[in-house]
Amino acid sequence: MLPFILKRVFQSFLVLVVTGAIAFSMFTFVGDPIDNMLGQERTMEDVERLRTQLGLDRPVPVQYFKFLNEAVRGNFGVSYRQGREVSEIIMERAPATLELAALSAIFAVVMGIALGVFTAIRRDGFAANFIMSASLIGVSLPTFLIGILLIYLFSVELGWLPSFGRGEVTKIGGWTTGFLTESGLKALILPAITLGLYQMTLIMRLVRSEMLEVLRQDYIRFARARGLSNRVINYRHALKNTMVPVITVIGLQLGAIIAFAIITETVFQWPGLGLLFINAIQFVDIPVMAAYLMMISVMFVVINLLVDILYAFIDPRLRVSAK
């Protein structure tokens, strides 16, 4: 078992280094940060001085090595746009994204499983058919459009919910939360639905098909023949066996929710990491882009590593083939 884990950890490490290298070689195509940093009145000397100062005159591999060297010590440099430590900015922005992602995930999982079970049990009912058709919209409409439609309906037309921002936030140590104020909670609703809608429909469709599969199994028929109530059959026996693949997908989708919060955060002016990243791209804020991309790739690599290891525990055949 240990050699398998070590091998996987080593592979993950390689993936990280390669992702970082690709990201760094792309930065040269994003544009010249110097141009945004100095006003139109700058002289050529200013440009050269700043370029040398930031180390941008050096070849990309050298820049990358320097970044890695500093990053392993937890130093991600200084944002070109805000003139502050990147690690400090990320710590400041992370609570917004994590709270939003957590609420979206809860929304997606709870609603997804509930609707999935409902549509599986009543699979020919009118309501179930309606939900299935409506869920196609959730899968096919792009996130920004859903966000703008929700804003239009609930903020502009009805005036119930705010169209942007986090509302009042409460500071608890280094963490800011919107869960403790009314305006903070109201501000969470629309972005959480927008961000979680795709995952919700995905989970719903997965639960439904798995459940239909399970309901056809012999042991369910025997359970019915034994005279067990529908409630016990559906929830104790069928749903439990449906959940194994569903949990795997949910785990992987959690990472996606954090990584793809970018669009939702832009539409709702949500002051989280995704908005920070979009700003960084527009300004060619290389330190912020590098730190964000590394963070996201670490997150995905860790999730995948855990899933791999879990699978190996569950399925011994993987351990054999790994040798």
Binding site: S163, F164, G165, T266, Q269, L275, I278, N279
Partner: peptide, 11 residues
Amino acid sequence: TPIQNAATRVA
């Protein structure tokens, strides 16, 4: 408040 997205600003 800075609001980046044009549609959100107008909304």
